[in-house]
Amino acid sequence: MISIQVQQQPFQIAAEQEALWRGKPQVGALVTFVGLMRDINVDREVSAMTLEHYPGMTEKALEAIAAEAAARWDLLGLRIVHRVGLLTPQEPIVFVGVVSRHRTEAFRACEFLIDYLKTRAPFWKKETTPDGERWVEARATDEAAAGRWSP
């Protein structure tokens, strides 16, 4: 039911979606989120971004986040694909997909997953800008979004 993948190679969005529901006639809702690399961050041009992680530790953290979502909502499947390495604008960075019998469960679980990925997954982002490279700091807005899921 839970599938986690951290990889350098690109992924196919439609194929990831279809793998979640194909052959499962009980699925009534598929909700996905795809994060894309953009060419600007905080009013600064960005030509590339490098995502770093600790293999093993990152997958374990993603599995814990996914397990928490599965415990909170009645899900029939969950898939997270997160890229690492060098990315350029318009490339997909992350895929979060959730299937359930009903849309409410799927929407809430997907939103929870992306909020927690932004704040609790051990990824480090370094952007390439006209002024050179810089590490991306955590945002208070991401922490606030994740905080609303606290029990």
Rank of each mutant, 00 (worst) to 15 (best):
N41P: 03
E127W: 05
T119I: 00
L20M: 03
A70E: 15
I4G: 10
E137R: 05
H53F: 09
Q9E: 14
R72G: 04
D142K: 10
I13Q: 05
Q12Y: 03
A138F: 01
S3V: 14
D142I: 01
V81F: 00
G77K: 02
A138I: 10
V84D: 01
H102F: 06
G35L: 08
T88R: 11
T50R: 14
A109N: 11
E127P: 04
Q26D: 11
W124T: 13
E68S: 12
Q12C: 15
E133Q: 12
R148Q: 14
A138E: 09
V6Q: 08
I40N: 15
G85P: 08
A15L: 07
A15M: 06
L62W: 12
G23N: 00
L36F: 13
E143V: 12
G147M: 06
E105S: 12
A140I: 06
L51Q: 04
Q7P: 07
L87W: 06
L75Q: 05
E63I: 13
S100P: 02
E143Q: 15
M1K: 14
G147D: 08
G97A: 03
K125T: 14
A61H: 13
F107T: 08
E137Y: 00
A19E: 06
W73M: 00
F11C: 06
S100F: 01
M57I: 04
E105L: 04
F95H: 06
L76V: 00
A71F: 01
A64T: 14
D43S: 06
V99Q: 03
L113V: 09
V96C: 12
P25C: 02
Q17R: 11
F123M: 07
C110W: 07
K126G: 09
Q9S: 14
T58A: 14
G85M: 10
D131M: 08
I80E: 01
W21I: 02
T58Q: 07
R134T: 13
W124D: 09
E133M: 05
K118W: 11
V27P: 07
A140K: 13
T119Y: 05
R134H: 05
A67C: 05
A64Q: 07
E18Y: 01
I80N: 01
T119W: 05
V98Y: 02
E45F: 10
V84T: 12
F107M: 08
I13T: 15
T128R: 15
S150N: 13
E59I: 08
G28E: 02
A70K: 12
E111P: 08
W149P: 13
L30N: 04
E59S: 07
A146C: 12
M57F: 14
A67W: 00
G23D: 01
A145T: 13
I80R: 01
A29I: 05
A138N: 10
S47C: 05
K125C: 07
V6D: 08
T119N: 10
E91Q: 15
V31H: 10
E91G: 07
A61W: 12
S100Y: 02
V84Y: 03
I13A: 07
